[in-house]
C-alpha cells in the first residue's frame, strides 16, 4: 500500500500539434488538475516508441499516458494510426507482464480540449493513487 501523502508520478507523452496544445489549453482555461504529470513533448504520437514507455516505467513512472491527435487529425497523415497498432501490442504485453491496466492509457486529445485533458489527468491520478507505486519502480525512487 502507498505511504501516507504519496503522490503518483505520471509521464504523459504529448504530440506537438494536438495533445500538447490540449495541456496548454487546460492551463489557460484554469481547469484544476493534480500536479502529478510530467509531460514529454514529441512531434507526433507516432514517435512514441514502446521503448520510451518501458523507460518511463523502469525509471519510476507510476503510469504512462500516450496521447496525440484524434484519428484523422494527425499532422503527419497517419502517425497516430501507427501509434494505435503499437499501443495495442504494448497494452497486451504489459497486461501479460502483470502490470495493472490502469497504469497505461491511450487518449486522443485536440488542442482545444483543455477540459478533457484536465479530467483525464484527474481520473488517472485517482486510479493510480489507489493502486500505489508501480512494481517496476526502482528502489529508492519515490
Amino acid at each position: 500500500m502507498a505511504e501516507e501523502g504519496w503522490e503518483p508520478k505520471i509521464v504523459a507523452f504529448c504530440c506537438n500539434w494536438c495533445s500538447y496544445g490540449g495541456a496548454d489549453t487546460a492551463g489557460m482555461g484554469r481547469f484544476q488538475q493534480p500536479a502529478s504529470t510530467r509531460i514529454i513533448k514529441v512531434m507526433c504520437s507516432g514517435r512514441i516508441d514502446p521503448l520510451h514507455v518501458f523507460n518511463a516505467f523502469l525509471e519510476g513512472a507510476d503510469a504512462v499516458l500516450v496521447t496525440g491527435c484524434h484519428i484523422g487529425d494527425c499532422h503527419y497523415v497517419n502517425g497516430n494510426e501507427k501509434t494505435e497498432v503499437k499501443y495495442k501490442f504494448l497494452e497486451e504485453m504489459l497486461q501479460q507482464l502483470g502490470l495493472e491496466p490502469d497504469r497505461l492509457h491511450l487518449n486522443w486529445i485536440s488542442a482545444s480540449e483543455g477540459e478533457r485533458f484536465a479530467n483525464f489527468i484527474t481520473d488517472v491520478t485517482a486510479k493510480v493513487k489507489e493502486l500505489g507505486p508501480s512494481p517496476l519502480k526502482p528502489e529508492g525512487v519515490k
Binding site: P50, L51, P135, K137, P138
Partner: peptide, 19 residues
Amino acid sequence: VDNYKMSMYHLVRLLHLSD
C-alpha cells in the same frame, strides 16, 4: 548499469517478437 527491475533488453524483445 541502469540496474532496472526488469531488463530493457528482454522487455523490448518480448514486445518486438510478439507478432
